[in-house]
Design a protein around this nucleic acid. Sequence first.
DNA 1: GCCGTTTTCGGCCCGACTGTTTTCAGTCG
Length: 576
Amino acid sequence: MSKNQEIADLFEEMADLLELTGANAFRVNATRKVARTLEELPSDVGDMENDPKQITAIDGIGAGSAKRIIEYLQDDQIADLEALRSEVPTGLIQVLGVPGLGPKTVATLWKEANVTGLESLRKAIDRGALESLPRMGKKTVDNIRQSLDFVAAASTRYRLDQAMQEAESIVASLSSTPGVNKITYAGSLRRGRDTVGDVDIIATTSKPDALAERFTSLPEIAKVQAKGSTKCSIRRTSGLQVDLRMFKNVGYGAALLHFTGSKEHNVVLRQRAIDRGQRLSEYGLFEENDGDEPRLLEAESEENIYAALGLPWIPPPLREDRGEFVDQLPTLIEIKDIRSDLHSHTTASDGKLSIEEMAKAAKKRGLKVLAITDHSRSSFQANGLDVDRLKAHIDAIHEVNDNIKGITLLAGSEVDIHAEGNLDYEDDILAQLDIVVASPHMPVKQEPAAATKRLIRAVSHPLVNILGHPTARLINRRAGLEPDMAAVVAAATDSNTALEINANPMRLDLRDTHARLAMEGGCMISINTDAHGADQFDLLRYGIMTAQRGWVTADRCINTWTTAKLKKWIAAGRTS
DNA sequence: GCCGTTTTCGGCCCGACTGTTTTCAGTCG
């Protein structure tokens, strides 16, 4: 298992503790950057123990951090971190996570009021120890108390689909407000991240006060946190925070660009502007003007701002500072490219509709191919099919296929991958299917090495066409398997097996970074909804967003292929 | 702490809101 995440967590902790000691902010930032760099590093820093040069060659990691990384690899601890831990109560890191409390305030709370964690903060508030501190009035203390309650109650990030539903409903409610010209959501939601911390809405309007009024009096608001003429902030009863930014009827592109982020992407863009004697903010791209007011170069469209910075327009899912600042970007896959869904369920196992009803629902959405892949026998909780039921089911699918026009049905199965990597049906049964999706279900907790072995064995099976939801994670509920994904990708590439991006927003598995690995490793991708009913076909959009974040192109996704090409690929995979 | 075809030292992105202030610090995104 890669050491990257483990060490990244330590650097993140180090950054928090440094901040609390009042360390130089740039040093804190540099430490956080090391953490982020490690998180996204495709190779394992654990393999570089004997080669410091290899570590310092990584952008953002210098000699100091390399030394600490090697120290951890050899001694299992970092002396500087241990020193910080003994200096600063580690419970203060949770206090830093309370909205409204930053490093300066937390340090004051610690030194002046003996706050060492969430519990002692609560007690300090209750005994009135905070009011006497500098810049600490009644209102501030009240806000801290409320934030504390919120932290105790809420999970920190919201699933993409949950945030999307709230955002789309808010945008729809506000778009008819008098004066509003353009309005949309931005932020990590627009970038299609699998979870979002809050929702950012951008609007241009000639009457900001009217819009602010409407926004802060929407239904389902738990608290209005800020209300100004350019910015408002609310917390919904769901716990989700929504920020509204209002702009005059100019500069929509600059605003959208700024608030779409990511922060890391924006930092690079701004630096690029500075290198050209320019300045980029949410109001536009400006040119220095000999001490006079800077001159506005461009603000209306994202395309023009990028162009002025010498870049092509960068699609929001790519805006993560993960290599997107290049002259030529790939053409990302879109919903309209998708012709088939190769993972779906019917009443034969745990779906809600019959074969024919699913086929009609898929056809109605413009799909040309639908694979019916009900659960295999070991998934008894999902009414998985034993061999006799499966044989009858194959016949039933073929019969519906013979009688329906405009869509091709494939008789498949979502076959459980057992703990050791063996499959839930014998080969002679699998050979009777038109397509095989093999997925890990139980167990979902396994040592990384065992999980890697399990998945490699499954993708290497000649009768397996697609590896379904490879890690079996459930967002905000369980972490799932942690295989060496690069090794799984390599095995899948060798055996011509596609890796699935399961579009169900509870899964989004492969996740974005894994999809990117798959693209770089050369294996095929399959984007499927895993639909258990008609409305779940509409979840495809989330799978597409994840695919775009993984730099997936249409030609590498088997669901974009013609029926003939798809069938040929399935057949070819089975001869090996 | 990291970085560098103008630099191995001196920089490191920008602006709004809140709550406390009488001119601004801290936080957030």
